[in-house]
Every structure is written in C-alpha cells, then in structure tokens.
Amino acid sequence: MKFIVSSSVLLKNLQHINGVVATNPIVPILENFLFRIEVGPDLSGGTLTVTASDLQTTMTTQIPVEASESGSIAIPAKLLLDTLRSLPEQPVTVNIDTETFGTEILTDNGRYKLSGENPIDFPKLPTVNKNMSVDMSSDILLSAINNTVFATSTDDLRPAMTGVLLQLNDDNATFVATDGHRLIRYRRTDLNASASTSIIIPRKALQLLKASLPENVPVTAEFSQANASFTFGPTQLICRLIDERFPDYENAIPTNNPNVMTIGRTDLLNSLKRIMIYANRTTHQIRLSLKTNSLTISAEDLDYSNEANEKLLCDYDGDAMEIGFNAKLMAEVLSNLSAKMISLEMSAPNRAGLLIPADKEENEDILMLVMPVMLNTYA
C-alpha cells in the first residue's frame, strides 16, 4: 500500500491534531496517528483520514492524496512530525507493508524507515448520537473560548470546574467558567438552539479548538448525553463531556452593587502589572483605595520591606472604600477583555467585584467576577 502527498500539507494537518497526543498515554498505541486511506470506485485518487486520540478527546482530519488501494496503519506521531518539520516542501511517497507494518518515507533525495503498528489496536472513533446540533461561526466560538477557558480550575478534585459550562436555549447561549476565585459568564444572543441543554466541555478540548480553529469558517457543534462534536472544514473534534454538577453560579453573582468605578482598561492593567511586582509573592495581594474620581493602587511585601503605590484618575462617586484583590488573577481577567473602558461594580470590601466592559459588542454580554482578599485592616 502506498500514497503520495505534499509534505507541507501533511505537516499542517498533523499539527492541527497533534495536541491530542499525550506525552505519556495510558495505552502505548495512543502515541501514534491512525492513517486510513479510502480510494474511490474509479481509483482516481484517495482520501487520507488521520486520527489522534487520548481516549477522552479524539481529533480527525482529511487530506486528499494520490493512492490506488485502501488500507490503514498506526504511525509514531513524534517521529513522523519531526521528519516532516525538517523537510522542504515537496511530494513525499509513503510505502506501507501491511503485513509487518514497516513504513518507508521517500523524498527527492532521502529514504526514511520507521516501524508502524497494527491499526486494529487503535481505539474506535466515538459516536455522537446527535440529540442536538448548533451551527455557528468559528469567530463566535473562539471569542467564547478566549473569554472563559483561562478561568477554568486545574483542581481535579472538583472536576465540574475543570471545564466550561455551556447552557443553550432558544434565545441565547451562555458559557460559564470558574475556579472558585473568579467567575466568567459570557453570553451570546445570536446563538440559539431549538431545545435547551446544559453540558460541561473539558478544558483540553476547548484549548485544542482554540489552537486549531481557523477564522470565520462555519462550525457545526453536535451534542449527545456523553459526547460533543465540533466539525469545521476537514477537521472534527469529539470529546467526552464532564458528567458532574456545575456550581450554582447565579447565586454567586451579587445583584446590588451601588459603588461603580469606570476606568480605562489598559491604564488599570498596566498599573496593576507594575504594582504587583512589589506585592507578596504568595498572595499577590493589592489594595484598591477609592475616593471620588480617584483610585490609589498599593501593595507591600512585609518580608522584604517592599512597597509601591500609584494614583489613577477614574469616574467614581460611590462610598469611600478599600478593597483587596489578587493582582495576578485580576490582571489575567483584564488581559482577556478587549474593551477600552471597564466598570468595576462593588457593594462591600468582603463581597465580589464585577468587571464589566463599558463598551459592549452587539449580541455579546460579558460579566467577570473577582473574589476579594481580606485586608488586614478589616475589623
């Protein structure tokens, strides 16, 4: 069995799905890509379907190739990618011995032999019983992922929080992520479904989508009880959903926040980055002191006698107050917003603060909640 394909086309497609391959997989066969060639009845050409899996997430991509017979083989992912990365653009011929699974890559001036594995050992592609499907633009999906995935938890003892909650209904779609210290709610009114559903998509699957989604292409998302599938162009990602109960996030969002500060996002972010250099290395604690149209940001590290403060102009006519935040978490939230002006809505120093873009895009609603840290001046 053999096929001919452009080295750069093959490399580009393999790089899209390579993120799935685990460094230390549970089963050794998962260190491989599964190559499956299907030749049409007229034998004029063939389609190469490449699959990568870690049992939880599976990605496939299809590439047109020159081939005269159908067949399949598992080829070591790292070895193949390293070889293709070092080759200049050219057609490569891949010869496969279907009995020994020996694989030979022939180029204009080279020959590379590697040993493949029996494709029968590779896990079967999971099926998605299409209970529900939603069509969207990749730009909408990328925006939702970029605004939420950074706030997912890495604590495996709370599995529900290691993914992003997606709530679909007939008038909007809501994406929610939290790690216990901050909560992001991203809502789209231009994305709706015929029926209501609530699922938790794992962080790894969303990070893979973020890395491989091209701009402005149609994406078909399909959901069943156990799996989610995202199809765009020749690529498909299927992931197992997190079967856990997501925290009741609505109750965590304070509703009465009379103290509202409006300030330039980049001004606040740049000031935070400077001040946090002087904050305690463990807590990253900074203090926001608010008075009429004035904000003072300060930090101190008592262990090293370091301290810093900056004064910024802002729009604020609420009560004079002091509130503490983790500067690292707050800076990350601000970095993921794109608005020029943001509002920080607060009620009391021991209640969560809400970061909301002052200038919103159409069909988009973003709310970012940051929990305060207790300052030692509290009674």
Score class of each variant (00 low, 15 high):
94 V>I: 15
9 V>C: 03
272 L>F: 14
282 T>E: 13
214 P>Q: 13
276 M>V: 15
34 L>N: 04
3 F>N: 02
134 V>I: 15
104 E>S: 10
207 Q>L: 14
264 G>R: 10
299 A>F: 09
78 K>I: 05
379 A>G: 14
234 P>T: 15
3 F>Q: 01
58 T>C: 13
241 L>Q: 12
281 R>E: 13
17 I>S: 02
77 A>P: 02
210 K>V: 01
68 S>P: 00
296 T>Y: 01
264 G>T: 08
42 D>R: 10
279 A>D: 12
266 T>C: 05
246 F>P: 09
295 L>I: 03
196 S>E: 12
333 V>Q: 03
222 E>R: 12
84 L>Q: 07
184 I>V: 15
301 D>R: 10
135 D>I: 14
251 N>E: 08
189 T>L: 07
206 L>I: 08
298 S>D: 07
16 H>W: 02
370 V>G: 00
95 N>D: 15
37 I>S: 00
341 M>H: 08
97 D>K: 08
138 S>C: 03
105 I>A: 05
328 K>I: 00
333 V>C: 13
366 I>H: 01
343 S>R: 13
224 S>Y: 13
308 A>N: 13
131 N>T: 14
325 F>G: 04
80 L>P: 03
47 T>G: 00
295 L>H: 05
75 I>N: 02
53 S>M: 02
83 T>E: 04
211 A>E: 06
21 V>K: 01
137 S>Q: 14
5 V>I: 15
375 L>A: 06
262 T>C: 06
135 D>S: 12
201 I>G: 04
263 I>E: 07
57 T>F: 03
135 D>K: 15
297 I>H: 06
240 R>Y: 07
79 L>P: 00
129 N>C: 06
241 L>P: 08
312 L>K: 04
356 I>V: 09
214 P>M: 15
107 T>G: 11
5 V>T: 10
5 V>E: 01
124 K>Q: 14
50 V>E: 00
334 L>G: 01
17 I>R: 04
222 E>V: 11
3 F>D: 00
292 T>L: 11
156 D>A: 14
123 P>C: 05
97 D>N: 15
247 P>Y: 14
365 D>R: 00
6 S>G: 12
221 A>P: 07
367 L>P: 00
112 Y>H: 08
227 N>Q: 13
5 V>P: 00
275 I>F: 12
235 T>W: 03
317 D>L: 07
56 Q>H: 13
332 E>F: 02
191 L>C: 09
222 E>D: 07
199 I>Y: 04
218 P>F: 09
210 K>G: 05
116 G>L: 06
177 A>H: 05
306 N>G: 11
26 I>L: 10
335 S>P: 00
262 T>P: 04
188 R>Y: 09
333 V>W: 02
149 V>C: 10
330 M>K: 00
44 S>W: 01
85 R>S: 13
203 R>I: 05
240 R>E: 09
225 Q>A: 14
359 D>L: 04
197 T>L: 08
262 T>R: 12
